[in-house]
């Protein structure tokens, strides 16, 4: 049975994000993912509030990166969270996004290795070991908690490229696939399967999550309008191979990229085509969204994550999802 997750970007005051988190829990979501960007509210402060004000939802950073946050600190943060909400904490970790790292002058060096080494360090420390690690990106000369960590914390790898996806299948407890369209999800799941098979595991051993850009409203035009800004950023950041897979002209993507760089929002958003919306978002009425999710489930995903913008009005959208979409997939 598919599980539902929801992603929040903590760019608003903590109490708004936590209000929505409580609402999501009440409406039947299983997972809560909070993004980690230095220019928004801190992910662990937000998650601590979520730990206090929720009772059963599983939550974690979705996703942190090892360049801005050293894996030793990440280990400490999630182990501490796991004391506040035992067995409800997960960790999402990926390479981060280049634009954000560039803006603080941090180089994204050997992303695959960095994520893999981080997971090894985090798993070691959170299991109470004294970690001595000599890697290609990270070096730990002897790190051990002065407290006893509570239990294993599942680690999800945020992945998009084939190597990261395979590595996620090989060593992750889960994978967060940044994609919305069956073409991309099929490709990604095949890559994950490769890693899973290399590790001698089954695909069902790994929680495969489609981490989508999502927008729902009873009026499909309103749902689409809300998705446009997010889709413009996705198009601008998508590699050539992904754009080509969806038949999106590189010139059209470049036009959006340039407009966003110049803060010409009207130009950027106005250049988003219906094909781009279809490729990079799940949006529309509840029935349309149910159809899209059904298609994605055929690719082998086990978790569907509702990501930004969620809908034109977040509170209303969470209610719609909880009342019309989630029940469709529950026995």
């Amino acid at each position: 049975m598919v599980r539902f997750g929801i992603e929040f970007v903590p760019r608003e005051a903590y109490w708004k994000t936590i209000y929505y988190a409580i609402q999501a829990e009440k409406k039947g979501f299983n997972y809560l993912w909070i993004t980690d960007h230095f220019n928004n509210r801190n992910v662990y402060v937000t998650l601590t509030a979520a730990a206090i004000y929720t009772n059963k939802i599983t939550f974690g950073p979705g996703v942190t990166n090892p360049y801005l946050v050293n894996p030793v600190f990440t280990a400490q943060a999630i182990a501490s969270l796991n004391e506040a909400a035992p067995d409800r904490v997960v960790l999402g970790i990926g390479a981060g996004d280049k634009t954000t790292l560039d803006s603080v002058g941090v180089e994204m060096r050997k992303p695959l290795t960095a994520v893999q080494e981080s997971i090894e360090i985090i798993r070691g420390i959170t299991s109470g070991k004294n970690v001595v690690f000599e890697g290609k990106v990270f070096r730990v000369t002897g790190a051990k908690f002065l407290f006893k960590p509570r239990g294993k914390i599942p680690i999800y790898v945020g992945a998009q490229g084939p190597k990261m996806l395979a590595m996620a299948g090989r060593i992750g407890d889960g994978v967060l696939i940044n994609a919305c369209h069956p073409k991309d999800i099929n490709y990604a799941v095949d890559c994950v399967k490769k890693g899973v098979s290399e590790a001698g595991k089954e695909l069902t051993d790994v929680d495969v999550a489609a981490y989508t850009s999502f927008s729902v409203h009873e009026d499909p035009k309103k749902a689409t309008k809300a998705a446009v800004p997010v889709v413009s950023f996705i198009v601008a950041g998508s590699p050539r191979v992904v754009l080509e897979r969806h038949g999106i002209e590189l010139k059209a993507a470049e036009k959006i990229r340039e407009a966003l760089k110049a803060n010409q929002w009207g130009q950027a958003f106005g250049s988003v085509s219906p094909e781009m919306i279809e490729a990079f978002s799940v949006c529309g009425t509840p029935d349309i969204c149910i159809e899209c999710i059904t298609q994605l489930l055929k690719s082998g995903i086990s978790q569907f994550v509702v990501g930004s913008p969620i809908g034109p009005k977040v509170r209303e959208a969470i209610n719609l999802i909880g009342e019309k979409i989630i029940p469709h997939f529950k026995p």
Partner: peptide, 15 residues
């Protein structure tokens, strides 16, 4: 303008 104590009271009662 939201006092933190008041926000926490609202969140507690919502929960």
């Amino acid at each position: 303008k939201m006092p933190a104590g008041l926000a926490n009271t609202i969140l507690y009662h919502w929960q």
